[in-house]
């Protein structure tokens, strides 16, 4: 288990993002719109790093990626701040 966690953390550290999107302090529909706009500018396979503080965002981004066909490659939560690495398919 610990090894797995370590692996994930390493994975997280090695992840290079192509675009960073800061949605801290923004509430409900805004992060989704911003992510959509940012993802439209990305090429397939590129990774977006999203930072958000909206408590619904972890569930929201799950649904969003399912609907749009993109994937969350890594997720981190610390002190009511959420970080997502989303890869465009």
């Amino acid at each position: 288990m610990i090894q797995l966690m370590k692996g994930l953390r390493n994975n997280m550290a090695n992840l290079a993002d192509n675009i960073e999107l800061d949605c801290r302090g923004l509430n409900d529909p805004m992060p989704i719109i911003k992510v959509k706009q940012a993802m439209d500018n990305l090429k397939s396979g590129e990774i977006l790093k999203l930072m958000a503080t909206d408590p619904g965002s972890s569930k929201d981004m799950e649904s969003w990626t399912r609907q749009t066909g993109n994937t969350i490659v890594a997720f981190k939560e610390s002190q009511s701040e959420y970080v997502f690495y989303i890869q465009k398919t």
């Binding site: 409900d28 529909p29 989704i32 719109i33 992510v35 959509k36 969003w64 609907q67 749009t68």
Partner: peptide, 11 residues
């Protein structure tokens, strides 16, 4: 407006 923006965001 939130629902409309959310729909657009979901593609």
């Amino acid at each position: 407006m939130m629902m409309a923006l959310g729909a657009v965001g979901m593609g």
